[in-house]
Amino acid sequence: MITRLLAIAGGLALVALVVPDLASSYLERQNETTTQGVPRAAPVTAAKYASGKSIVLEADAAGHFFGTFRINGRSERGLVDTGASTIAINVSAARRFGISVGSLAFNARAQTANGIVEAAYVRLDRVEIGGIALKGIDAMVLPDKALSGMLVGMSFLSRLSSYRAENGALYLVR
């Protein structure tokens, strides 16, 4: 009886040692072939929609990630910038998004690549890309001469469940 119990206990100990390694090996293989359900082997296009709640943006030749966002229902090309605290738009884009620029208080200061400029805080009603839609996103409006395009910063990215750059692609997941 004791011999039999020792044999069973030894077998269970062996299973306890092997099973975690099997699970780890399986997960490693899965991670090599898929990422958030998106096959890594699949070719990545400029804006490939991975699912309703995620999107993959391909890096341009300089390694930057651009996407077409919808701000308050209007399309605008934007550069995803993890170094930007908020979404940054210029006055012209703010007008296109239905923001009354004349009523904005340009009492904030923003550090740009070209120095410090006056800026105004706004809240965007809705920001979308692919199947990802977020409401009430903070942004800053800068003078046209200080910003030629839209930057999509951390006020958007931090509201996602995850984002990461990998193998020349940026994965955004809601």
Rank of each mutant, 00 (worst) to 15 (best):
L12G: 01
L170P: 00
E166N: 01
T82Y: 11
P20D: 09
T35G: 08
G131V: 08
M1Q: 12
V141C: 07
R159I: 12
T3D: 15
S75L: 11
V152S: 06
R70N: 13
V141A: 04
V127H: 02
A16F: 12
A105Q: 14
S103H: 10
D144S: 00
Q30H: 10
L170M: 15
H64K: 10
T3P: 05
K48F: 08
L124I: 08
V18G: 05
F156G: 02
L124A: 12
G11N: 02
A139H: 01
L142W: 07
K135W: 07
A59Y: 09
L22A: 13
G83D: 08
V44W: 13
P43G: 10
L6R: 11
G149W: 06
S148P: 00
R95E: 15
L14V: 14
R96A: 02
L134R: 11
M150L: 12
T68Y: 10
V44A: 15
A110F: 04
G131Q: 03
A16R: 01
V80F: 11
I132H: 05
R95M: 12
A165R: 01
I55V: 15
T68C: 03
T112N: 09
G136K: 01
S155M: 06
E58D: 08
G52A: 14
E128G: 00
R74Q: 15
L6C: 04
P20K: 04
S103C: 05
V101F: 08
V56T: 08
V101H: 04
R40H: 15
Q36M: 07
N107V: 12
T68H: 07
Q30P: 00
S161H: 08
T82P: 01
S85V: 09
T33E: 14
G98T: 02
G11A: 08
A113W: 02
A84E: 09
Y121P: 05
R77A: 12
H64S: 11
I55E: 10
A119E: 06
G131S: 11
V141P: 04
L147I: 07
A84I: 04
K135T: 14
L79R: 01
R4D: 15
L172N: 03
V127I: 05
R174D: 15
R126P: 00
L22N: 05
L5K: 06
I87A: 01
V80R: 03
S54R: 07
V19H: 04
R77G: 00
L57M: 06
R159A: 12
V141Q: 03
S103A: 13
V80H: 04
R77M: 14
R174E: 14
V15W: 11
G10Y: 01
D81A: 06
G168F: 05
N72C: 02
F106R: 03
A46M: 07
V173S: 12
S155P: 05
I2D: 14
A59Q: 08
A120E: 02
A59V: 10
G115L: 08
R74L: 07
F156T: 04
R77L: 14
S75K: 11
G52E: 15
K145T: 07
G78E: 07
V127Y: 06
V38Y: 14
Y163I: 06
A146D: 10
N107H: 03
D60Y: 00
I87Y: 08
L151P: 01
R123I: 15
V122W: 02
M150T: 11
